[in-house]
Amino acid sequence: MSFLLEEVKQSDSIYMPIPARITAVSTLTAEEKLFTIELPHELSLEHDPGQFVEVSVLGVGEAPISITSSPSRSNGTFELCIRKVGDLTKVIHNMDRGDIIGIRGPFGRGFPVERFRGKDILFVCGGLGMAPLRSLVNEVLDDRGNYGRVILLYGARSPGDILFKEEIREWDARPDVAVHLTVDRPSDDWDRKVGVITTLFPDVQVDPRNTVAVVVGPPVMYPYVLKELKTLRIPKGNIWFSFERRMKCGVGKCGHCQLNHIYTCQTGPSFNYAEIEMLEEAFS
C-alpha cells in the first residue's frame, strides 16, 4: 500500500490527477451531496482531519474539496461533501456510482489531534464548515476515551441546511457529547435556538485552562466567534481555525490562497490563533 500524495509527487507532474471511482452517492440537503471515493488498488489517502484534496473532472476543471471522513473510518475509501456552487460541482452532482473523478492530495496542514488529546474540545461550526469538521469530530469520537468534554456548537441557515442530520442526532443522543444547534431561519417544528452562531455561547461553560476550540465556518463568522472565545479566556494557541481561501493549485504555487505571505494551502488551512493573529489578512 502506498500513499496517494507520494504517487502524485512521483509522477512527472504535480498537477496530474489520479483517477478514482465514486462508489456511493447520497443526498444530504438541496445543495449538498456526499460522495464516497475509492482510490485505485494499492493506494491510500492517509489524511489528517482538516486536509483537502483537489478534485477534478477532465474537460471541466479542478477545485479544492475538504475531506469529510475521518482517518479512523477510512477503510480504503474516503468521503467528500460537495456543495453545488460552480461549474465543476454541478457536473459532479450529476455523477453517479462507478463514475471516475480525478484526485490530488491530500494537501495542507490538518488539525494536530495529538495536541488535542486530554483536552476538552469545543467545536464551533457554521454552515458548510461541517464538511471538514466532521472528519475531526469522528476522529475524536472514535477515540473518545482520550478526550475530556466534547461540545459542538453548530449554526446553519435553516433546518433543511443542516448537514449530516442523522449523525448529528446520534451525537446529540450520546451522554458524552453536548450538541447545541441554531438556525437563522427556523421551520415551524424547530425547537432549538434561532439566530447566528454566537447566540449559542451563553449556554456554554468551559474550563479555559483545558479547552481546545476548533472553529470551522464561513469567513464572516470568525471575528465574532473569536470575540466569544476570548471572552471565555481560551488561550490563543488553543483556538484553532480552518481558513477558507481559493486553493487553486494545492501546492503553493498559483498564488490565489495567499494570506499575507502565507500560502494557506501549504501552511494551513488549519492555524491556531497565536500563529496568525499578527497576519492582517487572516480575518479580513
Binding site: 477545485a63 458548510l128 481561501r245 481559493r246 498564488g255 479580513s284
Partner: peptide, 21 residues
C-alpha cells in the same frame, strides 16, 4: 495554466462568493 493577476476582481474569491480582496 495561464497567467493570472491579483489585481483582477475574482482572484481571491472563493466558490461561495466571499472575496478576500
Amino acid at each position: 495554466r495561464r497567467w493570472d493577476s491579483c489585481q483582477i476582481h475574482e482572484f481571491a474569491m472563493v466558490a461561495g462568493g466571499h472575496n478576500f480582496r
